[in-house]
Amino acid sequence: TLLLGAEPEKVCAMPDPALPDSDIKALTTLCDLADRELVLNISWAKNIPGFSSLCLSDQMSLLQSAWMEILVLRVAFRSLPCEDKLVFADDYIMDAEQAKSAGLLELHKAILQLVSRYRSMRLEKEEFVTLKAIALANSDSMHIEDVEAVQGLQDSLHEALLDYECVHHREDPRRAGKLIMTLPLLRQTSAKAVRHFCSIKQDGRVPMHKLFLELLEANV
């Protein structure tokens, strides 16, 4: 219940109507959207029960490792009702053709693979919010100071998922495990996204906001 209540509000992409359509415009829109979502995701993390009790440096390490996984998982969940399209925002839905012109076809395909995995499982909102918190707590940062405290957070979120499945999916005792088993694909997809946006950053043609840049640099 707390995780459902912590969910951030929706964000609109609002592509600049003054700019002509181009790959740069699409990427600028996405980077701006990501930056605004990141601010919300940091507030969200602070509302995960137990997260704010971690020391500040461990909170930073978890977010520095998992920020893109959180963004990708949110896009994947929003895209569940849309066949073959990614819902970056309600006003920014991208099909393969648009992804191709933005140079994002490979990433588009990778995220859609994740979407189809969750669609086939009929991922529910309660599972999505819990899985997202697990992805954050389980981000495998190499810089954790209080390993036991982070383990405690992982355990309590894992327990929440098991409790939910026990009540709502008695018919499939392996459902929690199946959900956890999607996390490697999420990590792989997120790593792909980070690599792609790092190369866009090096190109220097797309303006990026400071928080997005700061976190991209954390993953290099």
Binding site: I42, K46, L56, S57, M60, L63, Q64, L211, E214, A218
Partner: peptide, 15 residues
């Protein structure tokens, strides 16, 4: 951690 000023600030400040 020095380099991550914005993240640090956002975590320290209120929601």
């Amino acid at each position: 951690q020095e380099k991550h000023k914005i993240l640090h600030k956002l975590l320290q400040n209120g929601n």
